[in-house]
Design a protein around this nucleic acid. Structure first.
Lengths: 356, 356
DNA sequence: GAAATTTTGATGTACGTAAATCAGAAAATG
DNA sequence: CATTTTCTGATTTACGTACATCAAAATTTC
């Protein structure tokens, strides 16, 4: 049987009330007594029964998730996952609210962050936009002792507690490595499709991609980055133009925004020369394109894992408990046609009511 | 506030004791009363607070993990992860014991399964060997209502409750797909290194690999499978011979046993012609070889995830609770040099005390 | 309709922790 | 030394569920 608070009291020769004061850092305990209790805790190897403690506290964690609006499939999948987490909230003792703000709009994000702060929640998860104002808004939350986790896209320079997302530099490097090797002997330039360079995740992917391409596959020139603003029609037109202008294009790397337009452009392409296409985020569109052979590789981050990880980390931070880095690392999924999971795509499909 | 047993009692117009009898399917409730209570439960949307229930029951789940002995790095990593789970056992209310049996030995495994059964645990997780005797032994456990989860290698035809491992056919297909594309224009045969064809996971990987190679990359002949029995010295010798006999070898696929011998043979190779090497399981050896460029791709299954998933499933089955397939799917990790996680390899590193 | 049986209610204890109250003891202050 | 302040102990209630006991009510059986 594992030791309980009663055992601490007995071991330390103090009363239960004093043990409670020490455990929950309440005032009114002399330093000597406190140390006596702490030594007893150490000695008998007491660990708080979190389930019982939560039961006694009947604690709930009000959390705010701030996500970009718009029709980006990945972001909507992310929202679906947050809603799934809301469905589990009674079991997980969370009270999650979702706030959506226009994509790529730093001012709106700052407003949302400040409004979240006004509600003094137990934690905030945010898909960050890289901007000094946003950093300042995040730091204001932290100044109020509200834990902040960045989701999908990080916010370097801020005091955020944790980042729940993949290593995007590694993702870009991996894309380049696969691209270079898939191209094999073939020659020809490589195009890159981006949404906006405002978000850090896309910038980092591009950095990683460029580095490895330059280092190992310098035979393939990189065409100027196509910025499609995640607008399907615009992307389709721009990609179509690029393909027409450089028919010898050997590969395309899509950083994650505008996959629908990209796929449309690929479908309309007339040339039959092979193009190696690597895209980010597994959605119904990229999944279908992968199956059809239009896309060769999809790099993915599991939205469900990210959301669940963010919640775990926020709760832990709110309780002042340590988080285990290895446990919370979000892995980069590499999908070929051959290892696609059978079920619907993982970003759209909520994991039904159950904790991680 | 979520409804409690008291709310059920009030809603159904019965006493707490009767609600308890219905909830815990105790005898002594008239059918009409039972239905009244069940309707009330349905109506107010009651869900049992598992944490409180476990607290009240002070339930523990005695689980048995049966693993192959020997010095296979992956299996030892798996054992490390089970030991890490043992470290979390007080928090997770488990009492896990580990049984090791000689690898590739069906009789020993049957004995171990029957001995586990004699202890009537709450569940058994086993790295299966494909054999009618083993299937029968697993089915004996199931006949005693003891949940069984196969780990890493499945046992088709048995009544096991769940398989905690990757889709090995997809893994083999993925390996072939990567192999074929990495080879690009190059020609030359491809060698396959296996441990023993007794275990289903290796057979499935080989099946998947062969299928895709024949389908899409028939230009590369497959050399006869090298069976190294996971013996480093033997593997090194056999692979060395194969490389010497067929200097034009373009690729090697290692199904997961004997990576150390393979790496040793690769190091001693004199020819500088490029060989594409794809291996299973990320260990300190394959990690180093990946970094050194000796291996091109490592396919991995996260042992930690597998163990934690097996425990969750066994507990759920023991409680008669449904498991969520999507949540428990073990993903195939594809590692290139570029997306290796920073920390020590994930199979060796226990995730410190914390639930999933 | 009385007796035997089954069903239900009322109540208490337990799980391990949190949190509060109040009295008493120890320490610091004058 | 008396007084105030600070610390500590004893005790109780609560969280939501499980489980046991005993009495009372309802039902079935003869």
């Amino acid at each position: 049987m594992r030791p309980t608070v009663h055992d601490i009291a007995a071991a330390a020769g103090v009363s239960l009330a004093t043990v409670d004061r020490v455990l929950n850092q309440r005032a009114g305990v002399r330093v000597v007594t406190r140390e006596k209790v702490e030594q007893a805790i150490e000695r008998i190897g007491y660990v708080r029964d979190v389930a019982a403690a939560n039961l006694a506290k009947s604690r709930v964690y009000p959390l705010v998730f701030i996500l970009p609006s718009g029709d980006n499939s990945f972001m909507r999948g992310l929202e679906t996952q947050v809603r799934a987490a809301i469905g589990r909230s009674s079991a997980e003792r969370t009270a999650i609210s979702i706030v959506t703000v226009p994509a790529f709009n730093a001012e709106a994000l700052v407003v949302a962050l400040d409004e979240a702060r006004a509600g003094s929640p137990a934690g905030v998860a945010v898909v960050a936009i890289d901007s000094p104002d946003v950093i300042a808004a995040v730091d204001r939350l932290r100044a109020d002792h509200i834990p902040v986790v960045t989701l999908v896209s990080d916010l370097a320079g801020s005091k955020r507690d944790h980042f729940a997302g993949v290593d995007n530099i590694a993702a870009g490097r991996t894309a380049a490595s696969l691209m270079g090797r898939f191209l094999g002997g073939r020659s020809g330039p490589v195009a890159v499709l981006a949404g906006s360079m405002l978000v850090r995740d896309h910038r980092e992917r591009l950095d990683g991609f460029r580095t490895v391409m330059a280092e190992h596959f310098s035979g393939h020139a990189l065409l100027p980055v196509i910025e499609g603003q995640d607008d399907p029609a615009l992307v389709e037109r721009l990609v179509g133009q690029a393909l027409a202008a450089s028919p010898e294009i050997a590969g395309i790397y899509s950083l994650g925004a505008g996959n629908r337009g990209l796929i449309a452009a690929l479908k309309r392409r007339k040339s039959t020369a092979p193009v190696c296409v690597i895209a980010h985020e597994l959605t119904q569109h990229t999944r279908a394109a992968l199956n059809d052979g239009l896309i060769d590789v999809v790099l993915n981050q599991d939205a469900g894992h990210e959301v669940r990880s963010a919640i775990r980390v926020l709760k832990a931070k709110a309780d002042g408990v340590a988080v285990i880095g290895a446990q919370e690392r979000i892995r980069l999924d590499i999908f070929l046609k051959d290892n696609l999971p059978f079920e619907q795509d993982s970003n759209q499909m909520p994991a039904e009511g159950r904790q991680d």
